[in-house]
Amino acid sequence: MSSSRFTPRGFPRVPLQNGIGRYICQLKRVTLRFCKSSGSSRGIRDFIETDLVSFAQDHPGTALYLKPRRHKSPSFVAEYLNGEREVISCHNFTAQQMVKWLNLYTTRSGIPLMRYVKMWHTECPSIQGVWSPFTNKDPALNITQFPSEMLSRPVWEEKSATEELVEMINKQKISDENNDDIQKVQAAHV
């Protein structure tokens, strides 16, 4: 169900500039619902026996409620400061899994899950300024007379075959002359 038809899309964001001033844990309330006898609640019961007190000590800003309900499948309800409420089924969880899921929900911001368009977001996308037609423009263009012959030429002109041949012949002529000169000098020495 992660297609964009069902999940809303957006950018990561944070409620109340959380973290610029001080960090507030956004989870305000957790209700653990479980059965005292059924097997599917065994993990959550283990969690309550072993880890619940330390969880409550670590998160004093989160109100914790226990709600035993006979023969009901276990679940926990996470309520957030922005008013969102989420129910997570803990059917057949182990105590370890409970710790992990509760940890996930305490570190969330409470903004509903969404598909991130990007993993970052900024209100100020360009540090050196927005591009304009005048950015990095050569100042010499301010005083150029148009139409200019120089600027009207194509940027890259390839040489034609004739031109290349002429160039090669000229090169050869020069090297021939050089050789002749060297021979003359040598003859004079002899």
Binding site: I24, R29, T31, P60, G61, T62, A63, L64, Y65
Partner: peptide
């Protein structure tokens, strides 16, 4: 049913640090 005003007040002040 799961509402305890004292708990909530305590959590409120702890949340703000």
């Amino acid at each position: 049913l799961e509402w305890n005003y004292d708990t909530e007040i305590y959590a409120f002040s702890k949340r703000l640090g």
